[in-house]
Amino acid sequence: MPAILQVKNLKTHFFTDAGVVKAVDGVSFDVQAGETLAIVGESGSGKSITALSILGLIPSPPGEIIDGEVIFDGRDLLELSDEEVREVRGNQIAMIFQEPMTSLNPVLTIGEQVAEPIEVHKNLPRDAAMARCVELLAKVQISDGENRARDYPHQFSGGMRQRVMIAMALSCSPKLIISDEPTTALDVTVQAQVLELLKELTQEQGAAQILITHDLGVVARYADHVNVMYAGRIVESGTAISIYDDPRHPYTIGLMASIPNLDDDVKEKLIPIEGQPPNLAKLPPGCPFRPRCRHAIDRCAVERPELETVADEHKKACWIDVNGQ
């Protein structure tokens, strides 16, 4: 299968007064055409920065991509000129944000916003763009699109706005959609609906998806591959099934253990991961997870483990051989 996106050794650092924050520190992964790749991790583990780095949208200063390649469709996005990258953004790679409440411009109508990527990239006449917009609204299950296109964002509910964002993202039929925690701000009942829709529509278009989330339930249901990130690095990656059935990294195991299970006895306590995520500006040498790891050995304090293959398509970055079961 051809990889539509290859990220190789991506390093995005932020140069702040408090020191160099290594938000993304050597991340590599591939996204195959048509698949859904989930990136999982705590807040501040570098998930969103990875996504923004792919699109070249790191605020600079203070941020800077200091190393790595992002090969999309045979071209390294990091080498392209501003104009060439703009041509890719929204057109071939679309992004959906976390906050549907604020990701829409309050003074423009829904129609104007859904039609904007088409206007920017496809040079269609206005009425053709509007027709496409109504069609897209119908796709994301907003009925009466012709009238609703003339409404403003405040007349839409959160779930509807997120569906509008999906319509916007799909408008130019991109090959890759990056959704950055698309359902975090939504009601649980609406979450499933939005994710279902997202999955269905990306599959319909044959687009690949990068799903950034910290919700492992979402991952299990919608992802094909999973990357688990911790402190700016991928600590475990594999197919969703292998990660769930057989997590190998202590961090992943910890995450799994802290999911409440509906079938469990109510009195049974959840096992949280102790401690706090590390300060990315002052990472200790060795494995960044060591201070919170129950299995840590002496070597962990000295050397940082690299990703190594444990099974077919399953990699982990840990010195010790732990097993989830």
């Binding site: 949208l57 703009r86 057109n91 679309a94 944000f97 990701s103 411009n105 990527p117 916007m168």
Partner: peptide, 8 residues
């Protein structure tokens, strides 16, 4: 930011 991601 959203406008930037659509390539405006």
């Amino acid at each position: 930011h959203a406008a930037q991601t659509i390539g405006a």
